[in-house]
């Protein structure tokens, strides 16, 4: 099912939680809704579920305008951040609940519960109560309950945030697998950029209730639309240098100059050059900088380099034999270097 959000706005009193949001979520895709805490992700998700009414704008599921449909009519599956399993029901009863409401006959109900329980690997737990389950198990049950009624849309609100690091990785794969198996259009809310990059077909990046960019993870990483997108994705965080670009060189505020990989760009106005750590390469024709710190990470080395008064982080190959205190010559690769307007944050 394709989901269309058209100029969707949500205000709480005077505060705008979601601001003129327009995006299309393609059928069968897993979309990560990514953004910092408080940017309106849950609000947007709840509007998709019908829990919160929109202030203005329209929501369409395929051809249906569902803007004013109540949640019970929308046929979405929702996995809450803390799962919200009914504490007085067993796992089987929890999963069965949406089917009972649809008046599915009992034999069919039992067959479906069996199937879905097998899919999320909770067959052994059907007679347990939620308080007798671990966080990961609760999450699987919550997914089973959301999926069993074959929703048109599956919504997950930070489902992994209660889990420990290892389980989080595992469950991430599980969600991806189950989503592929069922082919249900899925919106996955997270504030973890790495989670969003690894799980999704498409990332919807939000900030202060506004859409920043809607693209596949790789596009978002290699072609950020604005400074916020460049900042938010990637580990270590992207390096940012203030200055001005002119005639093929970037002049830092501290006086140093760096040759640009794409000499054509000219900022004129104060700009920010953002450089990913992997965009540095040792090159005898490059500009000199001092290695102020070295950290070994796998087959590469992370170095802190001093360029004039600024410090940047860069990945350098280990075999270079570089030591702390050396001066090395580096150049910038064209991939992973972006210029943004300092004032507006827009890409130049």
């Amino acid at each position: 099912m394709q989901v269309d959000l058209v100029h969707v706005t949500k205000r709480f009193g005077g505060a705008t939680a979601v601001d003129d949001f327009t995006a299309t979520l393609a059928d069968g895709q897993l979309v990560a809704l990514l953004g910092p805490s408080g940017c309106g992700k849950s609000t947007l998700l709840n509007m998709l579920a019908g829990i919160l009414p929109v202030t203005s704008g329209r929501i369409r599921f395929d051809k249906d305008d569902v803007t004013h449909w109540p949640p019970e009519r929308r046929g979405v599956g929702l996995v809450f951040q803390n799962y919200a399993l009914y504490p007085h029901m067993t796992v089987a009863q929890n999963i069965s609940f949406p089917l009972e409401i649809k008046k599915t006959p009992k034999p069919e109900r039992e067959k479906k519960i069996g199937e879905i329980a097998a899919m999320v690997h909770v067959e052994e737990l059907l007679n347990r109560r939620p308080d007798e389950l671990s966080g990961g198990q609760q999450q699987r049950v919550a997914i089973a309950r959301a999926l069993v009624k074959q929703p048109r849309l599956l919504l997950l609100d930070e489902p992994l945030s209660n889990l420990d690091a290892r389980l989080r990785l595992e469950m991430r794969e599980e969600i991806r697998r189950v989503q592929r198996e069922t082919g249900v259009t899925t919106v996955f809310v997270t504030h973890d950029q790495e989670e969003a990059m690894s799980i999704s077909d498409q990332i919807v990046l939000m900030r202060d209730g506004k859409l920043q960019q809607c693209d596949p993870a790789q596009t978002l990483y290699h072609n950020p639309a604005n400074r916020f997108a460049a900042e938010f994705l990637g580990n270590p965080p992207i390096n940012q240098l203030h200055g001005k670009a002119s005639s093929g060189r970037f002049k830092l505020s501290c006086g140093a100059e760096i040759p640009l990989p794409n000499p054509a760009t000219d900022s004129g106005r104060p700009a920010i050059m953002a450089v990913r750590a992997e965009a540095f390469a040792i090159d005898d024709g490059g500009f000199p900088c001092k290695v102020s710190e070295l950290f070994e990470i796998g087959k590469e080395e992370m170095a802190s380099l001093k360029i004039g008064g600024e410090t940047v982080r860069a990945y350098l190959p280990l075999e270079g034999g570089i030591r702390k205190g050396d001066t090395v010559r580096v150049k910038l690769k064209p991939r992973g270097v972006f210029l943004f307007d300092e004032e507006t944050g827009e890409r130049i």
């Binding site: 829990i51 949640p71 019970e72 046929g75 919200a84 009914y86 609940f97 409401i101 009624k149």
Partner: peptide
């Protein structure tokens, strides 16, 4: 909320 989303 969960019950409403579940359809009841």
């Amino acid at each position: 909320t969960a019950a409403r989303v579940d359809g009841s």
